[in-house]
């Protein structure tokens, strides 16, 4: 600790490495000049204004920042924006259809699968991916594979009910 601090004090700070990163988010492309150390989460929130993706810990422990990279769920706080270059990034802002909410969003509303709503975008992004992964076969399975998304309000039973319904109703609908 002391060594690091004293090195910092000595002013040995190289200029932050910057470059242009091109991100494809919800089907749109953005070229952003930024520090290569910026996380995908901060790029989405601070550079693109897509604040639906939430920061709950910034340490990969709560799931609030869950987004999809090429359809698979990742934690945006543990992903560098530069790593997402050339891949399809989907956020909560990108999953509603033109004809209304995604079936998972609708099921969350019907089953009251949230309270304060802060973890909800991450829960929904996880739930959508979970069904694509084929992990929504039983309540037990849903519980297990949704356990990376903390909900401090404790809406878990309603989240399970919402996913169960969306999975049952939607089957293997292409949108799921």
């Amino acid at each position: 600790m002391t060594d690091v601090a004293s090195r910092r004090d000595a002013g040995e700070r190289p200029a932050p490495p910057e470059r242009v990163v091109t991100l494809t988010v919800n089907g749109r492309s953005y070229a952003l000049r930024m520090d290569t150390r910026v996380t995908l989460l901060d790029a989405l929130r601070d550079r693109l204004g897509l604040v639906g993706t939430k920061k709950g810990c910034d340490q990969g422990a709560c799931g609030a920042c869950t987004v999809h990279l090429d359809g698979r769920r990742v934690l945006a706080c543990l992903t560098l924006a530069a790593q997402a270059e050339g891949r399809a990034i989907t956020t909560i802002e990108g999953i509603s259809g033109t004809d209304g909410p995604h079936p998972v969003q609708q099921a969350f509303m019907e089953h009251d699968g949230f309270q304060c709503g802060f973890c909800t975008p991450g829960q929904i992004m996880s739930a959508v991916a979970l069904m694509a992964e084929g992990r929504a076969g039983s309540d037990e399975e849903i519980r297990e594979f949704m356990s990376g998304n903390l909900c401090r309000c404790g809406a878990y039973p309603n989240i399970v009910a919402a996913i169960r319904e969306a999975a049952t109703r939607g089957g293997h609908d292409a949108r799921l």
């Binding site: 939430k54 909410p101 969350f108 709503g117 909800t120 975008p121």
Partner: peptide
């Protein structure tokens, strides 16, 4: 009845202080 703020919460458009 469903929460009236549900549509904002499930679409990520409900603004929290950090937003």
């Amino acid at each position: 009845v469903n929460r009236v703020d549900g549509p904002r919460k499930v679409t990520g458009t409900a603004p929290y202080p950090m937003d």
